[in-house]
Design a protein around this nucleic acid. Structure first.
Lengths: 157, 157
DNA sequence: GCTTGACCTGAACCATGGTTGTGGTCGCAG
DNA sequence: CTGCGACCACAACCATGGTTCAGGTCAAGC
């Protein structure tokens, strides 16, 4: 049943928020950031095509993987422009994240091994410890020093 | 050779910056944030005890592990207060991070597996995809303020 | 005693990912 | 045609982890 007064295939921002579980303010923010787009009614209200639901799902999933919005936007820009993306289109994008995840897991494992080593040798020395001398394991993880996964805060209290 | 005019066991902020590879502005920031501390000369300049070098090393190492500064401070507060920390003291702290790293690696691996699954099934559906439905595997990775929310609050919003 | 470099404080600014608040409008039901 | 909820835009604000800038001081060498 289409919501009253709404074209069958379109969603208001509130409906999109409810269905996606994303706050209206966040949807506005995504739109400002170029991650999603909408048409407007005569009264300047947003109307979202249904495939925006999938876009939002992709955005949230990507965030869970730890990808910053700018990079998600970059990925979304690769989608076909005037055709509704297919399952394969989405799968291709997700595949990119898989590589990122693999890389990050490998980095964390290397980090863990070094940490174990450091605990064993009791070092943490500025001159010798790998952990305190970046450049050999972690290359980037840009400014702002983002946490990769901050589950701990939630788990721990 | 002690730097001219400086007590043998103390470091100026510039010396600490050089030896630790951390910018002076960052050291000021750490001090404002209660991660390190200094005494002052008659002319109000900072002088750091030598064990601050190790503290800074620990801070940087912890950041590489992905621990936020607030949590690092919390850990540093556990160190003995009026005694220079021993190797074991540091090792104990690092051990905590090891568990965190283990947990994060496990989470990322679970995430990767789900992503692989999602690529295979081509889903990314809001209703069925694990990735888009937080709460079963991962707590979400949220910026700042949202860390206090539990997952039920997010699901129901 | 003067110059120079290192240091001081405080405020403003950067990016990320949003939330919150304000004041005004849309649109639908009664 | 009125009232109410959902919507609009813009601005300010939150936390994190700092950097940069402005204006002023300390300390050491010549």
């Amino acid at each position: 049943m289409p919501p009253p007064g709404t074209a069958f295939h379109e969603l208001t921002v509130g409906q999109l928020a409810n269905r996606s579980g994303v706050a209206v303010s966040a949807l506005h923010f995504y739109e400002r950031s170029g991650l999603i787009s909408s048409s407007r009614t005569a009264g300047n209200q947003r109307r979202y095509a249904r495939d925006v639901l999938r876009r939002v799902a992709f955005i949230r999933a990507s965030q869970r993987v730890g990808i910053p919005l700018a990079q998600i936007r970059h990925a979304l820009d690769q989608l076909p422009h005037e055709r509704t993306p297919t399952r394969e289109d989405w799968a291709r994008l997700s595949g990119t994240w898989r590589s990122e995840l693999d890389a990050r897991i490998a980095q964390l494992q290397a980090l863990r091994d070094q940490l174990t080593e450091c605990i064993a040798c009791g070092c943490l020395s500025l001159r010798t410890c790998h952990l305190t001398n970046p450049g050999d394991v972690l290359s980037r993880e840009g400014p702002g020093a983002r946490r990769l996964l901050d589950s701990t805060a939630e788990l721990s209290h």
